[in-house]
Amino acid sequence: MKVLVISNMYPGKSSYLGIFIKQQVEDMENEGLSTIKVVKNRKGSIAYVPFILKNIFYLLLGSYDIVHAYYGFHSALFAAIVKRRPLIITFVGSDAVKEPSRNKVYRILQRFVVSRANHIIAVSSKIRDILISDLGADSDRISVITFGIDFDLFKPIPQARAREKLGFPSDKKLVLFPSNPQRIEKRFDIFNRAVELLQKENHNIMPVILSNNRRPYSEVPLVMNACDVLVLTSDSEGSPTVIKEALACNLPIVSVDVGDAREVIKDATNCYICQQEPVNIAERIKLVLNNGIRTAGRNNIKYLSSKKITSEIMEVYREII
């Protein structure tokens, strides 16, 4: 079986953006799947030119059995028009939640690609419900399959060892912001205000920013093990992978109620859902720090192993051929 993978959301050499898509594709390749990858991994609108040209070339002339497009009409439009082979579309979050509301054209294009898909994968039940109610997806042709976690990479290690390797101070309470502050939708402004409120009471609190171009992805587990709490303040998410990675490292979490964060966190010890408001977030962070314990969330998310998720996607492929 050969799959033509199309995505406008693929990481470059110094970016985490779309890393979960790259990992999922590589996991399937490790299971023996043959792929052709047509991806946009550079910033800027001009990068769409070679991306579109490659799309057209491989869709018309390539040899493949299935097209799997990641991220709505931006990746699936030409595949939906040409439609030489079965089409699967994975919606990751904003492509279902934010993009259709931008303007009528975006909404029409999203509804078009949804109507042309043989099967749709939604990364959370919330995204599935939006696709059905707002974009006309057929409930019989949609599955909820999120992105898996590499439990060999993301695992607990002693905090002191992680801090020593990274050169982090041993006497500070480290509060992790897990994204690029320049991405407005991640709401670094809210995170920063919450930390400022805490620092008025406790000068030992120090923010840590996990953003593009600062550290290689292989060091992300070290950062998570070095920190005391991860704080997610985004306006919207589909199925935030960073929440699962943190739980795999037993890092406590304070998160706004976005995507499937509430569902994934569930009853994990010392993890809290909060309002998207600095005072409430600061209160939850303070509660985590005062508790002074790691979570045991790793045991709650074994069902999210990358091997299991890969198996579920491969089964979808087999069903539609």
Rank of each mutant, 00 (worst) to 15 (best):
M1P: 05
L4A: 02
S7F: 01
M9L: 06
G12C: 09
K13I: 07
Y16H: 12
L17M: 07
G18Y: 08
G18C: 09
I19G: 04
I19C: 07
V25D: 01
E29F: 03
E31F: 04
T35G: 02
T35N: 03
I36R: 03
V38G: 08
V39H: 02
K40D: 00
K40H: 00
N41P: 03
I46T: 02
N55F: 00
I56A: 06
L59V: 05
L61T: 14
D65F: 00
I66S: 08
H68F: 06
A69T: 14
Y70D: 02
Y71A: 06
A76N: 04
F78V: 05
A80V: 01
K83Q: 02
K83E: 01
K83V: 01
I89F: 03
T90K: 15
S101M: 10
N103A: 05
Y106N: 04
Q110L: 11
N118L: 06
H119D: 11
I121T: 13
V123R: 02
S124G: 13
D129A: 08
D129R: 10
D129C: 05
I130C: 12
D140A: 00
I142T: 05
I142V: 14
V144M: 06
V144Y: 08
L153T: 10
K155H: 14
I157V: 15
I157S: 10
R161L: 15
A162I: 13
L166Y: 13
L166N: 10
D171L: 07
D171H: 12
K173R: 05
S179C: 04
N180P: 04
P181I: 08
Q182N: 11
I184H: 04
I184Y: 02
E185R: 07
K186S: 11
K186H: 07
R187M: 05
L197E: 05
E201Q: 02
E201G: 00
H203R: 09
M206G: 01
M206S: 05
S211N: 15
R215E: 14
R215Y: 15
P216M: 13
Y217E: 13
Y217K: 14
E219Q: 15
V223P: 04
V223I: 15
N225F: 11
A226W: 14
L232W: 00
S234V: 11
S234C: 14
D235F: 05
E237H: 02
G238V: 12
S239T: 01
P240V: 12
I243G: 03
I243P: 00
A246K: 03
A248V: 09
A248C: 14
A248Q: 06
C249T: 13
N250S: 09
I253K: 01
V256Q: 05
K266P: 00
A268W: 13
A268T: 15
A268D: 15
A282L: 13
R284H: 07
G292W: 04
G292Y: 05
R294L: 07
A296R: 14
R298Q: 15
N299L: 13
N300Y: 12
I301R: 06
L304S: 10
I309D: 00
I309F: 00
T310D: 06
S311T: 03
E312M: 11
E315D: 11
Y317Q: 06
Y317W: 08
